[in-house]
Amino acid sequence: MNIFRLLGDLSHLLAVIILLLKIWKTRSCAGISGRSQILFAAVYTARYLDLVTSYISAYNTVMKIVFLVASYGTLYLMFLKFKATYDHNHDTFRIEFLVLPCVILALLINHDFSALEILWTFSIYLESVAILPQLFMVSKTGEAESITSHYLFALGTYRGLYLFNWIYRYYAEDHYDLIAIIAGIVQTVLYCDFFYLYITKVLKGKKLQLPA
């Protein structure tokens, strides 16, 4: 555990808490892509199946459970409790265009052709693109609430910090995982446009609004 990894995990945790609180406090999931949230639930489920097969640390176990519970809790709030507020007209990204290539890629490029390993690889590939329905929704409506922007910023920052973690681990521990690194770069790059808007607009107190 190094500082980049810890800050990355905390940023990730902050993102899921912001999202849950936003939905809970406003009693609304307006502006949130249910499709991205379904993909994230699939990501955590596929990756954290190792909860039952390998123990790493209390920290890892607790965080995994928190991410799983928060993710399914978000789905519950969006698709059951506050279903009426779900903006499905703007949430139209075809997720099969993300899921199927990730399945194929996971079957072709993995560290080991075993069920758990392929699921882990699939989750890494899928996580890298899971935010696209959300970004698509923001671009379609042309704006995002500030709280949604904070969520996206924290979520994007998390994998960016993991990149520094991997650079650190490469030098300090001789440890690297090319699948995670390349997917992590893709994931972080997808947020760049958003980061720019966040820094130039939201941090100056303005609403995130895309140029017409």
Partner: peptide
């Protein structure tokens, strides 16, 4: 090099 199948990150 550590085993790739040992995933210790989140």
């Amino acid at each position: 090099l550590q085993s790739f199948t040992h995933h210790d990150e989140l």
